[in-house]
Design a protein around this nucleic acid. Structure first.
Lengths: 310, 310
DNA sequence: CCACATAATACTCATTTCGAGTATATATGT
DNA sequence: ACATATATACTCGAAATGAGTATTATGTGG
């Protein structure tokens, strides 16, 4: 066995929602690609991986992480090399927060900059039909043999074919990576891209970690009340709906959304109302923390709409 | 920052089902507690973590892993120390296989040996009311202050209270650990246990990894057709049901189970039948691999029963 | 060969959930 | 007062779900 050393890196996708924009905290080193807050794990100082994460995120971004969740551990050679040449195994985390001030060198950025094909709120993103599907068709045909062709065809169909599954964010990103449609592929393989480059690239494998974070969050929304970690203490039901829509990248049916949320006992009215510019004032609600005790698996079911507008 | 080094360990919960018994491959070092197959990750030789896993599992147990899935990365100090004193960060994997021959030094063992409170197929395990709940009540009362008491009460209620959620395997194990009801707690804290010790202990944090694996598998069953990885090429619908029941630790409604499975197009008849000792012969079915293309998220929904027998 | 016991498979039915609407209520601006 | 905008309530049919009963196909002991 070799003596090559390993170091552990911790990366965090710190997510917030501002109105209709789901955003992620990024570090912008001048000139370089956007990066997630990232730091080494110091085994001598830290008892757990998560405490290590909290510590240097606090130092680096002055953020107090609330809800955090481990996502995945990536160790692929070539997708993240340290300067010293040691192998970096990176453990990705998802953290949810109510948006606050950021530290210098960091900024909130809408996550659909990195994944423009994931936002179906207004309509199916045009780039899917205009750019992605034609390029993926070519990717299918370029397969080395018949078996690989069939496998690729299936993957394309599952990812971008009939029936959009909003949770398959990582699968779609990985497919686009392998098909050479994102910049990271060319950077990692040391070649120059002559074709389309979709979305804004990120440092190392950070866009992959972010894809994992979005996928996990979109899934979790449906069976755990995690949205509330992102909301202000009180909110209107439409604000809550907009937040869920922003995360899921889908529009929901307003009346059914409120029915689901109410029936599940996830919120309770405060008796206070907002003062909108126009229209009837909406009641302000708060999250009922007690549901965590009452119901075994409370969550905001989506109630996806199939046609027309809300 | 210190120079303490880290090494990466890879552990695999390799799962199979033999009839009605869900089992896991364990390594039995003489005298020591049961362990999951476990090996170091060699960054010089392996391109990805998963390929590292496959390699030494193959060497150590002669197993060819089929379906594998990363579970979680554990880095807690004190719950896994290497001999040399270096910190070990362990990445846990779940692997599904059709049971075959094991290598020397390994054995299949029913997973409910390690988690006897998780098997509700016959009835609610008696130990929950007789041992667990009284001990947890004490744990709640021993909390240092009122706030901690309330928090502990909630956790006990979610884990073992009304409405059994079969997926919360890890949460329950962690609660029992903190309450000192499993041997690992006393071993890790260097003290001797004077109270009850539930289930068979494992080496290091392997029982925690196994709990994570069971939880993940129980969840995934419902929305991805993973059971079929554990079945023979052909099987009767009752055999399939028994396998799902074994994994979920619950009984299902037979007629509804077959309706779900059939309607979802997960299986197709072979036209052949088995030859039972008594009763009508059952048709042998096979998994329809094409559903992976057809349906966005096929899985065996459980169709849990609320009363009586099937 | 005929009743059973046993298990597989088919069919029924009430209830709940879901998607998609329409209807009504309460604001503001003119 | 009324047009407009939004919040909230209620309705309705289709599908999914939970829990049965009914029927069919075997082997076995009289």
């Amino acid at each position: 066995m070799s003596k090559e050393t390993v170091s552990i890196g911790l990366s965090a996708a710190i997510v917030a929602v501002e109105g209709e924009r789901p955003s992620v905290l990024v570090v912008a080193y001048d000139g370089a690609a956007d990066a997630l807050p990232f730091g080494p794990f110091d085994p001598a100082q830290q008892r757990t991986l998560e405490s290590g994460l909290r510590k240097w995120v606090g130092e680096q971004t002055r953020f107090d992480l609330g809800y955090t969740e481990q996502l995945y551990t990536f160790g692929d050679k070539g997708r993240h090399e340290s300067a010293a040449g040691t192998r970096v195994v990176s453990v990705g985390y998802l953290a949810l927060t109510r948006q606050g001030k950021e530290a210098p060198e960091t900024a909130w950025r809408g996550w659909y900059h990195y994944f423009p094909w994931e936002d179906w709120r207004d309509s199916k993103p045009a780039m899917i039909d205009s750019t992605i599907l034609p390029a993926l068709k070519k990717f299918v045909n370029d397969a080395p043999n018949a078996e690989a062709t069939e496998l690729r065809r299936e993957r394309v169909n599952v990812c971008f074919g009939e029936g959009w599954d909003e949770e398959r964010v990582l699968e779609r990103y990985e497919l686009l990576y392998e098909a050479g449609l994102v910049e990271e592929f060319w950077r990692d393989s040391g070649r120059t891209n002559k074709g389309p480059s979709l979305g804004t690239p990120m440092l190392f494998d950070h866009r992959r970690i972010l894809a994992t974070a979005i996928a996990r969050l979109r899934g979790k929304l449906k069976y755990r009340p995690v949205v509330f970690e992102l909301m202000a203490p009180t909110f209107t039901l439409l604000e809550l709906q907009r937040a869920v829509e922003a995360l899921a990248g889908l529009r929901l049916h307003k009346q059914n959304f409120r029915r689901l949320v109410a029936e599940q006992g996830l919120v309770e009215g405060t008796g206070k109302f907002n003062a909108p510019d126009r229209g009837r004032p909406a009641e302000l609600f708060r999250f009922r923390r007690v549901v965590l005790r009452e119901r075994p698996a409370p969550g905001v079911r989506l109630g996806v709409r199939r046609s027309k507008a809300s």
